[in-house]
Write a protein that binds this DNA or RNA. Structure first.
Lengths: 192, 192
DNA sequence: CCAAATAAGTCAACATGGCTGACATAACCT
DNA sequence: AGGTTATGTCAGCCATGTTGACTTATTTGG
């Protein structure tokens, strides 16, 4: 394909302490002077470490059950949205049906999730966590919530609000309505 | 066949606006009243979506070069710490030598990274990005910085500072000094 | 009523990026 | 010289993503 050595791209620099307009081209026209590049770079790196450590705790718990992060995601969203369909899950996780099937099958076989044919449409398999699944989901969520809480607790009042707005703004714009509905309504999602 | 409508099923606790003590048992004795569980839960979920979308842009670029996220991390940190040793990289990434070797070799073979024997200790291989490697690293960093900037720009003044503190606090405590040194030194020790 | 569309499951094959264990090589240190 | 250290490498396993093709059950629409 394209020769990568060629300078097909702009290569806007972002050198340490470089002037702001380094990344101005193609950027938002407004509000482009507020944040130094070095601070943004710091955030990029911190986000990597933060996410790594954020997931580490849950990963350790999951390992005891023979599960991985993929199982966690499935369990979590089913827990949050009882009665959701497989298609809904695929939509949220943005993975293929086959990838989902692998972990979902294990969760069902081990008795953490169960499924029932839909009332209106019996092709659908509505997903529910079992009591066992609920316990694990809550154990994981509690741990992660506490992780966040500890991080926010030193950041003063309004920290949670701020974090929520920041994280929300990090989500791809076209996905925000869906995520917003998911996060806010959560258990009301099935009514549709 | 057990009817799933019976109460073997979920009972999704941690309901929005649920009482605090839902996760209070076995919790921290202090500072456990500030942030509603629903807000913490929201952050947990938002973090998942935010990180997914944050990495998506870079992933797309990397794919053009036949690289993955693992290559990105290596390239990034070598770019930020020219002359770093393999052992340093292993320490930061927390992966095995063999995992690193796989991607590092490809980056070297394709001319994005080069290595030179250390001056003092010639067993060491000091790592450097090439001009080509530098261009790619900056392209990726610029994109991610812009992503963060866009997210922060709507969050008012002090947003970057807040995000940095929040993300830093999310890092495992024992790792913070190392990360702090890494992030600060590389960006030129901004007075802050 | 039958054909097409839809929801879900499944098989096979493959890629990426973690992991372990074992071993090789070169350079350093005592 | 012998042991330690820094790095590289071979071989194989596992988790989790991918594509493509196909089946089954059910609903829907002409």
């Amino acid at each position: 394909m394209a020769d990568i050595t060629s300078d097909a791209v702009s290569t806007p620099r972002l050198s340490p302490s470089g002037p702001d307009q380094a990344i101005a081209e193609a950027g938002q026209p407004a509000c482009r002077n507020a944040i130094p590049d070095a601070d943004l770079l710091a955030c990029v790196e911190l986000l990597f470490f933060a996410y790594r450590d954020f997931t580490a705790g849950a990963d350790a718990v999951l390992e005891e059950y023979g599960f991985g992060r993929a199982h966690h995601r499935v369990l979590h969203f089913v827990h949050r949205n009882p009665g959701m369909r497989v298609a809904d899950l695929l939509d949220i996780l943005k993975i293929t049906k086959q990838s989902l099937a692998r972990v979902l099958k294990q969760l069902i076989d081990k008795g953490f999730i169960m499924q029932r044919a839909g009332n209106d449409d019996r092709r659908e398999r509505r997903l529910f966590v079992t009591a066992k699944g609920s316990r694990l989901a809550e154990k994981l969520t509690t741990q992660q919530s506490r992780h966040i809480e500890n991080a926010l607790s030193n950041a003063g009042p309004g920290a949670a609000d701020f974090a929520r707005r920041f994280l929300f703004a990090m989500i791809t714009e076209s996905d925000r309505p869906r995520v917003e509905a998911l996060v806010k309504l959560a258990s009301g999602m099935r009514a549709r």
